[in-house]
Simulated scan of single mutants.
Amino acid sequence: MATHGTSPREAPAAEPALAASGRRVFEVEMRGLEAVCARIDGAFSRACERILGAQGRVVCTGMGKSGHVARKIAATLASTGTPAFYMHPGEAGHGDLGMVTDADILLAVSYSGETDEILMLLPVLKRQGNAMLAMTGRPGSALAQAADVHLDISVPEEACPLHLAPTASTTAAMAMGDALAVALLEARGFTADDFARSHPAGALGRRLLLHIADVMHTGDDVPRVPADASLGEALLEMSRKRLGVTAVVDDAGRLLGLFTDGDLRRTLGDRRVDVHATAIGDVMTRDPVTIGSDALAVEAARLMETRKINALLVLDRDRRVVGALNVHDLLRARVV
């Protein structure tokens, strides 16, 4: 009886050919990147200088696969300190060109350099006075010749064996866009804090923007007892506040010590104590690990992990207890 499809026994023979095909794509694209990297020269520097000197935004445009690349370049520029947006060249000719001001600079991506939808925009933008940058694979193309600065992204071959689907060429264009973004980032002195401000909803934003003051317990929610309180009173305070710790403070609210769940186990295990007669000042941990309210929440997470502790007291400059937090607070804030 005839069977359809490939039997499981035939799969291993096919796998080496598939893997070899995949490796060949990487090899072709790496050669393409090496070729483009060798052309990072004065034109690249001039393109960066044009963008740095622009008073407006970088308007990235391209059609088809080049349009996807241009959209990604715009997103990378915008998130690394260079205001940018993507404009579809087809829609631009039907009204979206109104988004472009005379202070903006155009970055057009077209491997052929002959994309009609882009070329038809050039006279309008030239009359408006916009500077133009182009990424093409043909230095003699109409787009390359019209540009103020041309970046040559030509590659020796496409990874597609039919030499039809943009593969190595789009990788090269993407890498050139990344190179521009990083060079501009460094030239602007863009920092991790700047990056976090444009990514407040992401994990990095939380790690770089969230401070201890944003997640700590304050006021009456902070467990604290005076030094002359009994161990039993301290345990009641810990139970009420549910942080697994209590601060021991003087009359001015300054920290004298700390008592934790771990201290309780050690106290009850090492000696027989009367929880009502024992003063908390006799069994507390003196000079505990603390943190300031202006520190980042991620610093608290790092400190807890390093010191193998589950909670921290937060002090002001005069060592007054102003807050407390534990690892669960950091988990809720998605810092860890």
Rank of each mutant, 00 (worst) to 15 (best):
L236H: 08
S79Q: 10
I309F: 03
G81M: 08
P166C: 08
L258N: 05
D263Y: 01
T267M: 03
F190C: 14
M30Y: 12
L143P: 05
E34W: 07
Q55M: 09
R286Q: 11
V149M: 06
H88F: 10
A165L: 06
S66I: 10
G113V: 09
I73M: 00
V182K: 01
C37V: 00
L185F: 07
T167R: 15
P226F: 04
A35Y: 09
P139D: 12
M216W: 07
H199N: 04
R272G: 15
T191G: 10
L258R: 04
E27P: 07
T3P: 11
L243D: 05
M176V: 13
L243H: 06
L236Q: 05
D263A: 00
E15Q: 12
A333N: 02
A2M: 09
F26C: 07
L256D: 02
V249T: 15
L331S: 10
V321A: 03
L122E: 09
L143V: 04
A179Y: 11
H150F: 13
A43T: 04
R320A: 12
P123Q: 05
A203H: 08
L268A: 06
A134V: 10
D116T: 15
I73L: 00
A213N: 09
G53E: 08
V336E: 01
G257N: 05
A247T: 01
H328Q: 06
V36K: 07
I51T: 10
V314F: 12
R46M: 03
T136Y: 10
A134R: 08
T76M: 02
G323Q: 10
V289L: 12
R138S: 10
L125F: 14
T267Q: 04
L122K: 03
L330I: 05
S198K: 04
A14N: 04
A277P: 09
L256Q: 12
G232W: 06
R9H: 02
A301S: 05
P223C: 13
C60Q: 01
A78W: 05
L264Q: 02
P8C: 02
V155N: 11
L52D: 14
P226V: 03
R197E: 07
G81W: 05
M63E: 10
L184C: 02
T61E: 02
T61W: 12
D251A: 14
C48F: 01
L236N: 01
A131Q: 12
R39D: 08
R50G: 06
G22H: 14
A301F: 05
A14D: 04
M30N: 06
K65C: 07
L77G: 02
T306M: 13
F85W: 06
A108C: 06
L77D: 02
A181C: 11
R272S: 14
L106V: 12
K126T: 09
L185N: 12
